[in-house]
Write a protein that binds this DNA or RNA. Sequence first.
DNA 1: GTATTATTGCAACTAATTCGCATTAAAAAA
DNA 2: TTTTTTAATGCGAATTAGTTGCAATAATAC
Lengths: 125, 125
Amino acid sequence: MNRRNTPTKEAILAVLSNSKKALSQDAVEKQLNIKINRATIYRVLNRFCEDKLTHKIVGEDGKQYFAICKPCNKLSETITHHFHFRCLSCDTIECLQVPVVYAVPNGYEVKNANCVLTGICKNCK
Amino acid sequence: MNRRNTPTKEAILAVLSNSKKALSQDAVEKQLNIKINRATIYRVLNRFCEDKLTHKIVGEDGKQYFAICKPCNKLSETITHHFHFRCLSCDTIECLQVPVVYAVPNGYEVKNANCVLTGICKNCK
DNA sequence: GTATTATTGCAACTAATTCGCATTAAAAAA
DNA sequence: TTTTTTAATGCGAATTAGTTGCAATAATAC
Ligand SMILES: [Mn+2]
Ligand SMILES: [Mn+2]
Ligand SMILES: [Zn+2]
Ligand SMILES: [Zn+2]
């Protein structure tokens, strides 16, 4: 199933590129200047993830956030797993350039990591 | 608002105590031998969290899991933030005795951490 | 025993995400 | 350039997890 170029895809990608924060479907929709269907936005975002263009973070609010972050693209696989920070005040999630370090017990195979720190961000203090 | 002792509370606590894994509301309900309302289970679990008897983990599946784990009770605040592991095969979350280590940029205040590794657990390999 | 109010059950509700299906439109083929 | 193929989209309905209002129940204090 080959990917196709569509205005929808471009628009959503542009929004993500211009954002320093990870965005929820809702946030993406609000920042779009064209009207795109909710389900479609989810589908596009998930396709981006499949293609490793973005990554998905799940907050302790249980919501999905999507980010295309600099670290992810330029650095090695190791730092690909980095911490995220969710500010309780401005309710945004951002990628921190802080690698996730851990060691798992024998016999465990880690495929992914979802690490979110919560608190108050620099701007909101 | 003082807490009261009820059979419901005892039953749910017993289930959590006997479990080596973190449990969702659904999982708790299934393991109970008495019938307790869904909303009530959530309320009891959240009360446990308020009272620091349990802690809540949110998986990348967006669901809430509750655990009363050994490390949490006997160790210091520092290790209270530990990694969790969610097995994609048996779909359970467990507390790892692996501390979460990080350093945040200046001006950030961390209040909580939700760190979940995903993959295949020892048993399922 | 009586009063107070935390706890519970039930049903309705909310919010986030997904899904089925018909329609549209990229891109490949002719 | 037209035709064909099928990925992408829109819409509405469905699903899932969790919450909330409210009346009934029951633990605890008096
Ligand atoms: Mn990132
Ligand atoms: Mn734990
Ligand atoms: Zn903030
Ligand atoms: Zn497993």
